[in-house]
Computed example of a mutant assay.
Amino acid sequence: MKLSRRRFLAFTGTTAASAATLGDSLLFNPARAAESSQQPGKVNLDYPTIPVGKAGDLRVGQAVSFTYPDSSSPCNLIKTGRETRGGVGPDSDIVAYSILCTHMGCPVVYSAEERTFKCPCHFSVFDSELNGQMVSGQATESLPRILLSYRASDDSIEAVGVEGLIYGRQANILPSA
């Protein structure tokens, strides 16, 4: 039996739509995502709150290493020395990013002179003062930004979430073993 182009397209279109609907209903989110009652459709992940340092201990341009949201995710905390969008601290100049390049996961290195993160593997460059935006290179996405909170009472900085997807993950929060 010969299949006409019209019947073939109708069949494949129906099959694809059915698969997409079924796949959407069967998705499992290992991060235990919950729908927000304040914003229906928005997903909230159960990010841990982890102390990462004191604002007064930071020096301009010096990267401070930590891991977040788990020990398999290296990050850098940077005091930029100028007010930065999304920055915290007394001068709103403290930011943090995952240091796994969004191209292939190589660890990026912070350059205080250029105020950028550079990937030594494939030469992508990310702007530390513009939300980790990709400036040049092979990467097509910005570095995931680590959301921070600042408490003036004890000068402490805590990591509280991630904006963007950490390289190599389907969800930023890994499932419990």
Rank of each mutant, 00 (worst) to 15 (best):
V125G: 07
F28I: 15
V60Q: 13
D70Q: 07
Q62S: 02
N172I: 15
S4I: 13
L22I: 10
G132A: 02
T67E: 15
G105Q: 07
D127L: 03
T102G: 09
R115S: 15
S72D: 15
S25A: 07
V108C: 10
K118C: 12
A33S: 08
E163D: 13
Q138F: 06
F8E: 15
V52F: 02
M104R: 12
P175F: 01
V135M: 07
L45S: 08
C75P: 01
G132E: 08
Y97D: 05
L143C: 04
A33K: 15
A96Q: 10
E35C: 15
R82M: 09
C75D: 05
G23Q: 07
A112L: 01
V64A: 08
E83N: 11
H103M: 04
I166F: 00
A177T: 14
P51E: 13
P90S: 09
L77M: 03
D91I: 01
A159N: 00
A33C: 10
V108R: 05
S153M: 09
T84R: 08
S153R: 12
A16N: 06
Y150H: 01
D24F: 13
V52Y: 04
I50T: 07
T12Q: 11
A112V: 08
A10Y: 13
Q38P: 08
C75I: 07
S25H: 05
R82H: 10
D93I: 00
T80W: 00
E35N: 08
L143P: 11
A16Y: 12
V60M: 07
V162C: 10
K79P: 04
G23Y: 00
L9Q: 00
F66K: 14
A55C: 02
A31W: 09
A19L: 06
F8S: 03
Q133H: 12
I94L: 04
R145I: 15
L58I: 01
T102I: 09
G164K: 05
K54I: 04
L147F: 11
L174F: 03
S65Q: 02
L130R: 10
N76K: 06
F123S: 02
